[in-house]
Design a protein around this nucleic acid. Structure first.
Lengths: 286, 286
DNA sequence: CTATCTTTGTGCACGCGTTCACAAAGACAT
DNA sequence: ATGTCTTTGTGAACGCGTGCACAAAGATAG
């Protein structure tokens, strides 16, 4: 998963569709599209729910926000539902998208086929590196950052994708917004601050992995002891660690007055320059 | 956001840390790491919260689940908190990870630096294409799928990343699980079914973009009319559609008996082979 | 030692989301 | 036309997450 929403004061749902439901509509749409391709005429809420990996009651309630599109005793008409959900999501219109930061990730995104098939169209690829300019990626010539504003205006772009290093993300976001973009998908590991009315969604692999690690640790049963409860046996693992040697050593629990010089964290980082840690998007451009 | 959680019966939090809190810990950790590198000794909940992009009350409540690590009137000791959160997330130990599917995305992931600096280590890159075998990606030689089980066993891998096309995702997941993997990060646009006790997290760019499109549509105020209210003027847009011509035509609302031959969806898909629509991960491998 | 000031930790209330369970609606058979 | 059977749509209860607001805790000055 990408990671949660961002900003936007909870009272966001314009007409009444809950955010949680909106987030599931693409899931339903995907499942329905698959059924459509297999020429299945109708599905029950039960079948569709299991295909989408959700609870059938939840699915029915979700659909109830869109209207009564089902037929009792039969189920839902696949084609009709595909259309209704597409329309509700705004996928029946063309969405020109600009991708900023054509590194490894940006290139991967540009190549993504699911883009076009869902109403999205890559209007331009932008990179700050002059050496990239003109290079074709996914059949589209990369343009220099200078062209950003012009491209946005000419194509009426309202959705931008940021795949730059963290340091560039905020400036890029500012320029996108200034040029008229009102929705941003951010792959850089930074908190973007944007004016009211601009939507930001964040995707961060690093966070997803850390969440997995948390649950993994719990499963192995061996959650490290409380850190303060057993002051004598704490460091055991960390001290000897070679490759396993972990980034952080346990500082003293007592707080008052401890200057940075005493900070053990400075000794970690196996070879990365400090400051470069989260500097690149989860999926890093070259 | 990558997309929500998956499976796992809500009563998951082992000792008492809410899932929502766990999902935010990496955010705090990133902000704290940045402070640590700037040698800032302490932060208030207010400062840290704004750096992480959350509410300060929420942050304090989150930390309260970990214990009382703050000092009233002063704030939190940065180094100590970095350690505590790292430990809680399980980042003080080494997590060997295997990446399956070395396309565009898989390669981008392998290159990601934030991996290693957080306790994750790429143990192996696996691809089904024999031509890939031996090729170095990010300094690691790609291995053929046949090696999957051996690699997992030898390295004690418990976390797997799937970056294959959708069709391969489930078989790969099955093999991962059978070999001992208990946490999976899935980039393929499919619902994976896994046995109890295996965690799956999903990242799907396509879904994120669709959610953005929804809000974007709402902002433009022009939400298309109700779709059933105007039965006469329905097809208008779709029939003539060129590039903008949308994937779905509005089928009749009446349900009963409509065979697949009448299904308009077969006429869409601008050039994609049917079935290839969501076939690749959000960020597609070559 | 006392007073003041800052900041944490948390009790409480509210709202959103999920789930259950069932009545209503329609299909289908007789 | 009537009855049965399937499946939807939703009212209601519950639980989690969020945010407010404040008391308790400690630092700091006098």
């Amino acid at each position: 998963m990408a990671t949660g929403r961002n900003h936007r004061p909870a009272t966001s749902r314009s007409r009444g569709i809950p955010d949680a439901t909106v987030a599931r509509l693409p899931l339903y749409l995907r499942a329905l599209t698959a059924l459509s391709e297999r020429s299945v005429p109708t599905v029950s809420s039960e079948e569709l729910a299991s295909a989408a990996g959700v609870n059938s009651a939840k699915l029915r309630k979700d659909f109830s926000y869109l209207g009564s599109y089902g037929t009792r005793g039969v189920g839902y008409d696949v084609e009709y539902l595909v259309y209704q959900i597409s329309r509700e999501l705004g996928l029946t219109q063309d969405w020109p998208v600009v991708i900023v930061g054509i590194g490894n990730l940006g290139a991967a995104l540009a190549n993504y086929g699911g883009f076009a098939s869902r109403g999205f169209r890559v209007a331009a690829l932008i990179d700050a590196d002059p050496a990239m300019a003109g290079k074709p990626v996914a059949g589209i010539a990369v343009q220099h950052s200078d062209e950003l504003e012009r491209v946005i205006e000419e194509n009426g772009v309202s959705i931008g994708v940021i795949a730059t290093p963290a340091a560039s993300a905020q400036p890029v976001a500012d320029r996108l917004v200034a040029a008229g973009v009102t929705s941003i998908l951010n792959f850089a590991p930074t908190v973007l601050s944007v004016p009211e009315g601009v939507d930001v969604r964040k995707v961060d692999l690093s966070i997803e992995l850390q969440i997995l690690a948390f649950h993994e640790q719990r499963k192995s049963g061996e959650l490290p002891d409380d850190g303060r409860a057993v002051p004598g046996t704490d460091i055991g693992e960390d001290a000897g660690g070679g490759v396993t040697g972990s980034p952080v050593a346990p500082p003293a629990a007592s707080v008052t007055k401890r200057t940075a010089s005493a900070a053990p964290a400075a000794t970690d980082r196996r070879g990365d320059e400090p400051g470069n840690d989260g500097d690149l998007p989860a999926v890093m451009p070259a």
